[in-house]
Each structure stands twice: as C-alpha cells, then as structure tokens.
C-alpha cells in the first residue's frame, strides 16, 4: 500500500472514562487505516464505542492510549488549541441535529469555519457561496436556518463542512432526523462529493440503508472492531 494515500492511521486506540468509581472502557484497541477518497461507514449499536471513535477521528477528543495519525501528523499528541486548528482546516462535521446557528442565514452559517481560519470577509463570502451551490442551495443563501426544511438545513450543514476544503467529512447519523426521501437526497450529496470531488467521507450510523452507499464498512461492538466489509 502506498503510504502517501493513507489519510488516517489508528494504532491500537483505547479510551477509558472514569465514571464515579468504575472505569468504562469505551475503546479497547482499534487499529485501522483510512485511505484518501474512501467512503467508510462506521456502524454499531449504541454503547458500542462508535461515538467515542468518531470524536477521536474528529479531533474533538484524544485517545487514552495508542496513536492517531491524520495526514501523516500524530494528532494524538496535540493540545486543545492545536486540535481546534486541525478541526478547522482538515475536518468538516455534519451532525444528526444539523447544529446550525439559530436565526442565522445559510450564508453566515456556512462562513462560520472561515471566521476561525481568518479568511478575509470577501473571500469567505465567495467560498461560502460556492459551497452552497455545491449542495444545491443557490438562491437560498439569505434564508435563515429556522425558515428552512430539515433537508435544506442538512445541506447547509454539508456546505459548512465543505467550505474549508477539508481532508475529511465526518457525518454522525446525517439522516437520523430526516424522512426517507430527504435522507436519500442527502446521501446522494455525500456520494457525489466522494465520487466527483474525491473527498473522504466517514459516516457514523446504525442505519443499514445509509451504510449501503459506503464501499467499506466497519462494525464496532464493545469497543473493538467486530468485522470489516
């Protein structure tokens, strides 16, 4: 395997939480490699550790033990501020509940990551318009988040994830709050971004229909990889 193609490398990741007097071992040793351009689904029942894994992949959290490389850098040694910088430049998040800023326009929501990368205002607007066009929201830039349908909101969230040209889009149950039809449309957007634009996408889900579009699937149970497809 050409190591230049590896985007993410996980080496024996463990995560242990202290809850009161008991230790909860959410991850018990995960090793895996994700290559650039992959479309991976991470699946597992609730309590399996998939959220914990997603938080580590998304640089929101650090593993207790083990090493995590993103784009060749060992980010498991980074401090909070460095992690924030990595989230800003390399990762785009899409959440189940959309997590848009309330009463804020699609454009402003999309510009949000650019605010923290110090992109000049004019440039930021251009990039945000482009990202909104990519998800099919031309002409809706000035609609406020509370005036939009669930599908539109999720598209804004995807545009926001795209706007900083990240190495990786991390989607956590992206269709969980949408009806089947809208959900399928959103999945199509992910598929298109992956196939046409070559963006690496990781879907975290327990829905087999969602994972159906993924070329690789990772099943997690009790903090360990149960199976790979």
């Amino acid at each position: 395997m050409n190591s230049n193609n590896v985007l993410i490398k996980m080496e024996d990741l463990t995560k242990t939480y202290q809850v009161g007097e008991t230790q909860v071992r959410a991850l018990r040793g995960i090793s895996y490699e994700i290559r650039k351009g992959d479309l991976l689904a991470i699946m597992g029942p609730s309590g399996s550790g998939k959220s914990t894994l997603m938080n580590i992949i998304g640089c929101l959290d650090k593993p207790t033990n083990g090493r995590y490389f993103l784009d060749g850098k060992e980010v498991s040694t980074y401090n909070k501020n460095q992690l924030a910088g990595i989230r800003n430049s390399k990762i785009g998040f899409v959440f189940q509940t959309f997590n848009l800023l309330a009463r804020t326009t699609a454009l402003e929501n999309t510009e949000l990551p650019l605010l923290y990368s110090n992109t000049p205002t004019r440039e930021a607007k251009k990039l945000a318009m482009k990202a909104l066009a990519q998800v099919g929201l031309e002409g809706r830039e000035l609609h406020k988040s509370n005036q939009m349908s669930g599908g539109e909101r999720q598209r804004v969230a995807i545009a926001r994830a795209l706007v900083n040209s990240p190495s990786l889009i991390l989607a956590d149950e992206p269709t969980g709050n949408l009806d089947t039809k809208t959900g399928n449309e959103i999945m199509d957007v992910f598929k298109r971004l992956n196939q046409k634009n070559g963006i690496t996408v990781i879907l975290v889900t327990h829905d087999p229909e969602v994972s159906a579009i993924a070329e690789k699937k990772m099943h997690i149970r009790d903090g360990l990889i149960e199976s790979l497809e």
């Binding site: 989230r87 430049s89 949000l112 990551p113």
Partner: peptide
C-alpha cells in the same frame, strides 16, 4: 452552550 459547541467543532479556539 450548544452554539459554543458548534463553534468549537468548527475550529474556534478557547481564546476565540
């Protein structure tokens, strides 16, 4: 708090 979480996940640092 939620807004703060969103901003942090988008790369806002503590000082931001």
């Amino acid at each position: 708090i939620r807004e703060i979480g969103i901003r942090m996940s988008m790369g806002a640092r503590e000082k931001d």
